[in-house]
Structures are given as C-alpha cells and as structure tokens.
Design a protein around this nucleic acid. Structure first.
Lengths: 260, 260
DNA sequence: ATCTGTGAATTGTTTCACAGCT
DNA sequence: AGCTGTGAAACAATTCACAGAT
C-alpha cells in the first residue's frame, strides 16, 4: 500500500505478500525478547502468541522467507532473528531525518527503539530559526535551509515528516527532490509523491475514528448477547452541540504543535 | 483486526468491510476541506483524488453506506459529511483519556484535530507524582491513582496509551477493568485484552521497518550486478535430496547459527 | 453526456487440514 | 509424538465494466 504505482509488472522476484511484510517486525520484536532471555528455540504456537497472531498465519508467513524451522522442534531463535533482520533490510544502517521538531518530532527523536535497530537519526530539521542549534535528544536542530545538503551529505533515503499539515506536502516535495524515497508521514494530510517513492502514514485521528466506529456499534448492540463485565451504561457525554464543520483548525487538524 | 474473537456469524447488520471503515476518515477529511471552501458537490473522481484512492474504490465504499450520490452529478458535500460522520459515530462526543504524559503524550494532548472532531480529552494521566497538577495543553495532569474514578466519572470508553512499553499492559488492564473498551496503543508492545475490547496500535519502528524493506528492495533492483540478494538456494525445499546447502549469505558471512 | 451504483471477475489474505520430516 | 511447511478452500478486498439514473 502507500505507493500508488510502483509495481514492476512482472517481477517474478521475491514476492513476499505485503501483509506478511507488515508482520515481520512484530515477529522480530518477539524474537528479540526471546533472544534476550536466551531462549534457544520456539514453536510457531509460542511465537505466534507472543506476537499476537495465530500460528497458521505465522507459519505461512515464514514459508515465504524459506524453510527456517525444524519439524518436530520449532525455530532457532537467533537464526530467525538474523533471517528476518536481513529480509527487512535491518542488517544495514539507515540514516533518517526528522522534519518538524515540535512535541511530536521531539518525541520521535527521543524514541529509543529508533536508534536501536538499524535506524539512526542523521538530523533533526525545523523551519523555526529559533530552534536552530538547540539540541533535542542530544542532536542539534538544523534549519530547513539545510535540508537538501543534509540529505545528500548523509545519503538519507528515509524521511519522517512531523510538521503541521500545511507544511507537509512542501517538505515532502523537497525531501523527494533531494533523494528521499521513503517517507513516514505523521501530518494529517494526503501526500502526493512520484512513482517509486513509498509513503506510509500514521494518523491519530484516523485511528480514533476507526475506534469510534466500532465503539458505536458495540453500544448499539446492547440488546443482544451476554452482558460484558463493564456496565457500559452511562456512556455518552453532554456537550453534543457540535457537528458539521465548525472547528477551529482549517481542516488542517494540526498535529502536535510546533512553532510554525 | 484488533478484535480478537467477535464471531457473530449472521449479524444481518450493516456489514461495512473493515477496509472501508478505515478509509471513511480519509474521505471525511477531504470532504470537510471541500465544505470549508463551500464546494457544493463533488464527483467520485475528484473526491477520490483528494483522498488518495481511486474512484472505483470510493464508489464501492460509499455503496456500503447507501446511495448518497446523484448520477450524472456527484455527491452533495454537506450531506456526505453528515452521513459519514454519523456512520463513524462522530455526531456524539467521545471523552478520551491519555495515559503517559511524556513527550509523546504531550504531543497527543496538543494535537488539534483531536478535540476538533468528536473527541474530547477528558483527562491526562501519568504515574509520576511530580507531574500531578501540572497543566499540559491546558489540562492538569492527574496521577495514575485516579485512573479508575476518572474513567467512571467521565464515562470514558476510549483510552490512549502513551507510556513506556513496560507499563503498557498494566495500564491497559486497569483501563479495561474500569470500563474502557477501545484502546489506541502507542507503546511498542503487544497488548492482551479480553474479547469485546478493540485495540489499535501505532508503532513507529514497525512503520520504519516496513519502509526499510521496500527501500532495500529498490536498492537491490537498480544495481542488478552487485549483490543480487541471497542465492536463495535452499528456498522452496522442492530441491530433491540434499537441501542443507549453504543458503543465506548476502554478500558477507552470516553468524552461522546452525540450521539444524 | 455524464457520473453513480453494483454485479462479476480478479487479486490478495487467512484459515484449514494434513503430508512429511525429525 | 510433535511440529513445520504448504496445497487447497474459504474469505476479503479491489478492480473492471457497464446498466441505469439524471
């Protein structure tokens, strides 16, 4: 997903399903935890439980990578960690830039698991001149003017956008023009990119809205079936005077602050 | 996804596909922008472009909601905004608590689009006593001790977890016990919840790893001469007889962890 | 003439269930 | 006996392509 038209028509190559790729990081995390506890082998059942999936799916997923297990025994933890890391491209080091150092950008910069496996924050970039030089997570913030040279000098191919929605497309364009080919977008806006560039988005309000949908459905279903543990009686709060479009932020839904 | 069990075999209800539900917020955002520009109607083609999907998909999605368009004309923007809002449950106000007010929690609390559409931050909760009373985004942080009473007093059914991974499951358990039935998890860990509770996760490192996978593939594709991936010899064990050939081995050597 | 709504075809994903290896 | 690996079946999502409404 994400890329509109990337498909090389007939790349009979290593066709790992996208759904599987999206789960590999989950398996990797579970395996890493086992590795740290020096657990030597694990069955598909155990590993699946740790990753929150079912074992048939896990086995099918692994079958796309190769036959890395041992029948009657399970999977060798260290070996699998290595194989999945390699498959995900984590045996190399990916320099990443974060653009937009507001609360969210700072949170991302401070995120531990970031630097830990394969990724390295090469630079923090913000449009506010007052931020320039200020260290965040031990890294001095640089001004947007430097964006192109930073990308090029560090060979950055992955960029993280944590700016307000209004600035996101512009930042995206500059990142792409400078050579970035993968973008993780935290701004609540749809980014348009050329073919060959991957975009993934993380969007708080979308996630909340999906939850609200299901939540609403649960509430309307109270007539049926068993009564759940919690007394979902008094849901629904008062202030209901809002509905269609009288919000402050121009659709923008500005994300985590940041001096614009 | 998210909901573990849920088998309601023949709920003749309004079975909107999950993939469609996940796109409704996207359409809603695009429509809200149009609404603010006082655009009266929009075609599936235009709206699809604004939302970053193709028009056939959009029409199919809308067909699950009902027939809200006019052939030869398009969709009435205001009407659609209302219908989708209603479908998503945004015509009511959802009180939300955020647990874990670090950089990320603060970023979430400050997130504009949060309060703007149907969601209201009912409380900010943190385990650090030193945070108690301190206002973040204009809302005083409360101590974890108050968690249960906050949930109950405010009729909160949606909780956001922005704590460190180590605390997430514990917080989750308390939220669920207090009556929360939808959770948005930002902590990099798998949460276990009872049936009937929805969990959605947002995970930076998973997203980056997925990008790295695709990035790696792009790199290996443009320079076909270099190190053409692994000589996937042992893939697909249909190789008759001997199988334990030295598989793996991108360029360098591997920490030969024994494949049995 | 245009654009929606939707069956039918296609493509992708998950689950089943069991053969085959250890 | 136990557990993986995988065809085949079931299910889900997407795309096609056109009938039908305005």
């Amino acid at each position: 997903m994400a890329t509109g038209r990337t498909h090389r028509p007939a790349t009979r190559s290593r066709g790992i399903p996208e759904a599987t790729v999206a789960r590999l990081p989950l398996y990797l995390r579970a395996l890493t935890a086992l590795s740290e506890r020096s657990v030597p082998t694990v069955s598909s059942e155990e590993l699946a439980a740790a990753a929150g999936v079912n074992s048939a799916k896990l086995r099918k997923d692994f079958s796309y990578l190769g036959s890395y297990g041992t029948r009657g025994v399970g999977y060798d933890v260290e070996y699998l960690v290595y194989q999945i890391s390699r498959e995900l491209g984590l045996t190399q080091d990916w320099p990443v830039v974060i653009v937009g150092i507001g609360n969210l950008g700072a949170a991302l910069a401070n995120y531990g698991g970031f630097a830990s496996r394969g990724f390295r924050v090469a630079a923090l970039i913000d449009a506010d001149p007052a931020m320039a030089g200020k260290p965040v997570a031990g890294i001095p913030v640089q001004h947007t003017d430097e964006l192109e040279s930073i990308i090029q000098d560090n060979g950055v191919s992955i960029g993280v956008i944590a700016t307000p929605a209004g600035a996101a497309q512009q930042v995206c364009d500059r990142l792409v023009a400078a050579g970035v080919t993968s973008i993780l977008n935290f701004a609540p806006t749809v980014l348009t990119v050329p073919d060959g560039v991957d975009v993934r988005k993380v969007d708080l309000s979308i996630e909340l809205q999906i939850l609200a949908f299901h939540e609403q459905r649960k509430a309307g279903e109270e007539a049926t079936a068993e009564a759940p543990a919690a007394p979902a009686a008094a849901r629904r709060s008062s202030a209901s005077g809002r509905d269609s479009g009288t919000d402050q932020g121009p659709d923008g839904d500005v994300p985590a602050v940041m001096p614009a």
